[in-house]
Amino acid sequence: MAKAMAVDPRYYQITVLGSLLIYGVLALDFEVTWSYVSIILTSVLGTQWLCSWMTKTVFEWRSAMISGLSLCLLCRTQSWQLAALAGVLAIATKFVFRRGGKHSFNPTNIALVLLMLVTEGRVWVSPGQWGNVAFFAFLMACLGGLVVMRAARADVALAFLTSWIILIMGRSLWLHEPMTIPLHRLQNGALLLFTFFMISDPRTTPDSRAGRIVFAMLVAWCGWWWQFRMFGTNGLLWSLAACSVLTPFIDWLLPGPRYDWRQGIKSHPDHHEKIPAPSAGGAEPALPC
């Protein structure tokens, strides 16, 4: 187990997201209580367990924990029922919307988008909560970069970030705005969180590198369009959910090998964790989610 901890990138993600949550609550005065955190974490872990039991797959608590911590960082609501529902939706959608052994949507992203869509403002995201202190942005970039490199999907994060910088800088150049404006927009913790912890989710992005780059550019453009042409908020969250629908098409157009969290574990010669056998009647292997 200790060796598994040393190689599975999800432990890094859990540590970084957990640290950000503690930092947010203690230093940035996030309106997140520990009871709120426990409701969300209980709901994601409970739903994961239930869905694993129903589908006879291994109970994979690490991915559920990542979704839960991300929800704690992003999802804001006054209703504990809606907080619990966010956790249920995040996990349940992984099991319901699946294609070819991977899920169609980033769990946190789809839960937030669905709830923002149907609750008439009772669930919201505060993109300004991180502020834009450069030091903090830099720190998050390093921590996030570390996670992504371990997850071997740095390409999607870098392609997205490059596209986003071009769009933000390009717009400001076109509008003859001083460069302090795009820099202010880029020095944002919410952007880095999205880049390194959401769009880079290897279980939802296209399989091939070319596909992932196309996907990242598409997400950046749609998010930019929503935010700066339609003057909506949370452009990137809406954009990622909408573009995820196109992932199967991108995979068909630009096929590639599928990502498996166990790749890193498999590569370790001394690893003894049991990998479940494919389910008896199912066409898909019973992979942990």
């Binding site: 309106e31 804001r76 609501t77 006054q78 609750t119 403002g121 009772r122 669930v123 919201w124 505060s126 705005e177 001083p178 302090t180 404006i181 820099l183 202010h184 927009r185 908020t233």
Partner: peptide
């Protein structure tokens, strides 16, 4: 100008506390 380089964008939240 240095600390608030861009216009302020607002959103209404569901917070009623």
């Amino acid at each position: 100008r240095e600390h608030f380089p861009e216009d302020i964008v607002f959103q209404e939240t569901g917070d009623t506390k």
